[in-house]
Simulated scan of single mutants.
Amino acid sequence: MDKKRIQDIFSITSASEFEALALEVFHFQYSNNTVYKTYCNLLKRTPENVQAIRDIPFLPIAFFKTHQVISSRSKPTVIFESSGTTSGNTSKHFVTDIDLYQQSFGKGFTHFYGPVEDYCILALLPSYLEREGSSLIYMVNDMIQNSKNPHSGFYLNNLDELKGKLKQLRAEKTKTLLIGVSFALLDLAEQFPMSLENVILMETGGMKGRRKELIREELHDILKNAFGVSSIHSEYGMTELLSQAYSKGNGLFECPPWMQIITRDTEDPLEIQSHGKTGGINIIDLANVNSCSFIATQDLGKTYPDGTFEVLGRFDHSDIRGCNLMAL
């Protein structure tokens, strides 16, 4: 797609505009992404019979572990990599236009929270800092730089220093965002409970094997009690995407205008699930135009008519269907 049309992705204002661009992106990726085209052909879903969003095939996210999923002839400038599992099997996202990623996460944050330069950004992301290739670290580092606040920065295991910084910022009444991985926020809550009533506290999920997994509600209750806040915000993103959804504390996530969540039937991956019913989460991320914008994740959730959605958990690996239709 030409650059001007790609920029239109960030100007979507209606459902009809979203659908028109989604179908255009589908046509482009079908023609330019070998992995996705092969998958679509096996499902007999081609530009000739895909007439609406519900007809578009969603590529199982597992293919990012085994194939180079790319819809551009340009060479990748950045390769983002997931944290992986004990088997070392990681997802790789080959990004050919890093500016597009910067636009997506920058405009997405501004859409929900206002200009990043209004904030002091504190990041407690030790498991991500300890490895290379994290798209989350790239995003947060860019936000820290653009905040232009001298107190913005990353924290690894220096929780005592972070405690002091939070107390200083609170005393100065500085608008502050603390974004952290779940296990590190729990460490901070246990070691240094304190009042953070004027801080936006945002978790990115994940215990990364450091702690017992908790349901989101339980995690949020612990953090709210420790820090005296009424709500915990959440960020929902992944290595394979260029966009993020956010929750401001009620367990319901919202997408920026160029992103949409659709759920699929847990038994039939090609059947779209109705609102309010638990299904597998399919993501449309139109900013991901040079990779794949239509991804079937291994997360479970519910969507609602107002466009919000919940994340309820993950498929058990034995239950994942539709991921073995293609062997290249």
Results as ranks from 00 to 15, higher is better:
211 R>P: 05
218 E>V: 14
27 H>N: 11
197 E>V: 12
240 E>V: 14
284 I>F: 01
82 S>V: 14
266 T>K: 05
106 G>H: 14
220 H>F: 11
130 E>G: 08
151 H>P: 00
36 Y>D: 09
158 N>H: 11
299 D>E: 13
309 F>E: 06
30 Y>E: 08
134 S>E: 06
4 K>W: 02
275 H>W: 06
63 F>L: 15
246 Y>A: 12
86 T>A: 13
279 G>I: 05
138 Y>M: 05
230 S>F: 08
135 S>I: 01
322 G>K: 11
201 L>I: 15
143 M>T: 12
291 S>T: 14
145 Q>R: 03
74 S>Q: 09
222 I>Q: 04
255 C>P: 02
79 I>H: 03
232 I>A: 07
35 V>T: 13
227 F>Q: 10
76 P>D: 14
14 S>D: 02
134 S>C: 04
254 E>P: 08
262 I>V: 14
56 I>W: 08
301 G>E: 15
228 G>P: 05
32 N>V: 04
20 A>G: 01
102 Q>K: 14
280 G>W: 01
249 G>Q: 07
37 K>P: 00
183 F>N: 09
208 K>I: 13
283 I>R: 02
154 F>L: 06
67 H>N: 14
19 E>T: 11
114 G>L: 10
170 R>G: 13
137 I>R: 04
245 A>S: 15
223 L>N: 07
79 I>A: 14
238 M>Q: 12
206 G>V: 14
287 A>V: 09
184 A>N: 11
296 A>I: 04
99 D>L: 09
122 L>V: 09
122 L>F: 03
166 L>R: 08
220 H>W: 07
318 S>F: 15
280 G>V: 13
13 T>H: 02
284 I>P: 00
199 V>I: 04
245 A>K: 00
174 T>M: 00
166 L>T: 07
326 M>T: 15
311 V>A: 03
230 S>M: 09
